[in-house]
Simulated assay, not measured.
Amino acid sequence: MKKSDVLEQIRKIGLVPVLRAESESQALALAGAIADGGVTCMEVTMTVPGALKVMARLAKERPEILLGAGTVLDAETAKECVGEGATFIVSPAFDEKTVSYCRAHEIAVLPGALTPTEVIRAWDAGADVVKIFPASAMGGAKYLKSLKAPLPNIEMIPTGGVSLATAHEFLDAGAYALGVGADLVDTKAIRGGHPETVTAHARKYMEIVKGFQAGCLI
């Protein structure tokens, strides 16, 4: 898939669940439950045990999922993730070599930043979208709106503090898409044998996103 197509799919789906789990099997169960709820985009973080194996299995078994790799801290790791099927690379911070590698190989890259200076630096280096993390620590949607006011041309995905209660606020503030963590990626529900809880939550998120997108088209 071309980089432009990957980025368009991220925007269209509107959600990027941050997949953290305690085991490979739990990660796969979470991914399946989330995708069954209509959220067919997610990043498997490198903090998941056997993360590369999880990516490889998802790429093979759930081809409908737009698969990304998260918590990627260097270019070598980015290369390994792409080799296992990741179509976009996400990081909690900005690493110039990682962005350079992705640019050279036409891979969508979403480095993390927080302050205006960090955001501009990441964008100028070639970020396709800048991950604003942790957004909650700076005031959530209000902070994103403050960043977008002087930097309307920079695409941003807020992560941290995104929930069903705040999703619409972040979208209204100008989010390219939403990075969603524990509010959707519910390991407790999976441990308890209730993947349907995660699936139902995913559907609620998609209802918010699609409702917002429909309103923007009116």
Rank of each mutant, 00 (worst) to 15 (best):
A56Q: 12
G37D: 01
K53A: 13
R62N: 05
A59E: 05
G85L: 05
S91W: 11
G14A: 09
L114I: 03
K53Q: 13
L110C: 14
L110T: 00
G193N: 00
V6M: 07
R203L: 10
A75R: 05
R191N: 06
K12L: 14
V48G: 08
H168K: 15
P111E: 00
D183I: 02
I34F: 10
A75Q: 01
L184K: 09
G179P: 09
I107S: 00
V162N: 06
G140E: 04
T197H: 13
P111H: 07
E80K: 15
H105K: 07
A214N: 12
S25Q: 14
L147F: 05
K188N: 04
M206A: 11
I218K: 14
L73D: 03
A56C: 10
L15I: 11
D5P: 04
K148G: 00
R62E: 03
G50Q: 08
S146E: 08
D36E: 15
S23V: 01
M138T: 02
F133L: 12
T45P: 04
I157H: 06
K148C: 05
A173P: 03
I132G: 07
G85E: 04
V185Y: 05
V16N: 04
D172H: 12
V16H: 10
D95T: 04
A137I: 00
P17V: 03
M156K: 13
L66N: 03
R20D: 02
E80I: 06
P152T: 00
V39Y: 12
G68Q: 06
C216S: 11
L28M: 13
T47V: 04
L52C: 07
I89L: 12
V198I: 06
T47P: 07
A141V: 08
W123I: 02
G140S: 08
C81A: 15
D172E: 14
I65D: 02
A173C: 12
E80H: 14
K3G: 02
V44T: 02
E22V: 02
I13K: 13
V82R: 12
L110N: 06
E106R: 15
L58R: 05
D74G: 12
H201P: 00
R57T: 00
V185F: 11
A33L: 08
K53R: 15
F170Q: 07
H201E: 13
V180E: 02
R103G: 03
T166F: 10
A137E: 03
A78G: 09
F170I: 01
M206V: 05
K142R: 15
I34N: 07
R203S: 10
A104M: 02
A125H: 11
V185E: 01
A31V: 03
T47G: 02
T159S: 15
A122E: 02
P111Y: 02
L217Q: 14
L66C: 07
V90R: 13
G68M: 08
R20Y: 06
W123M: 07
V44G: 00
R11W: 11
L144N: 10
A182L: 06
V72A: 11
E96R: 15
L171H: 08
T166G: 03
G140W: 11
V185D: 01
H168I: 09
I10H: 07
K53F: 05
G70P: 08
S25Y: 10
M1V: 10
G14R: 13
M42K: 09
D74L: 11
Q26T: 03
T98M: 15
K148L: 08
A135G: 06
M46F: 15
Q9K: 15
T40A: 11
A108K: 04
C81G: 07
L171R: 08
